[in-house]
Design a protein around this nucleic acid. Structure first.
Length: 120
DNA sequence: ACGTTGACCTATA
DNA sequence: GTATAGGCCAACG
């Protein structure tokens, strides 16, 4: 049977996959929304990854969302961590230097899930 | 239902 | 190297 796939399930699965990838990010490393979206095959919908992160706070399980920044290495989501400096402080704890809301040596700190994880 | 917004990215000039 | 435009898909007013 070519079963009718419910969009709700796919949508929910997408969120779940995003959280799985984010949890696999090693400490002291950062990645971008586009990299995650690209890993999941939705490179054109990087914005949805950000929306998934927005809902991550609603989960009981802790998600290291502070390790996810934009393509420029800018902490665009710091506004959603309760306190504006919360995200930056969490990154500094892991040894990441942040100046002017921007990760220093972003290219060195960048962690690509496509190069480290395998496609499910 | 329509228009705008948003934790973004790629392409072009 | 920066600046601007377009695309993308879901939530919100």
């Amino acid at each position: 049977m070519t079963g009718s796939i419910k969009i709700s399930e796919q949508h929910k699965d997408f969120f779940k996959q995003v959280y799985q990838v984010v949890k696999q990010i090693p400490p002291g490393r950062v990645t971008s929304y586009g990299a995650i979206a690209r890993f999941l095959g939705m490179a054109r919908s990087a914005r949805m990854v950000g929306w998934a992160m927005n809902h991550s706070h609603h989960l009981e399980e802790p998600i290291p969302a502070h390790r996810v920044v934009n393509r420029q290495g800018l902490l665009t989501g710091k506004m959603h961590f309760g306190s504006p400096d919360r995200m930056q402080r969490l990154l500094e704890i892991e040894g990441i230097t942040v100046q002017n809301d921007q990760v220093r040596d972003f290219e060195k700190r960048f962690w690509d899930p496509v190069a480290n994880l395998e496609i499910p």
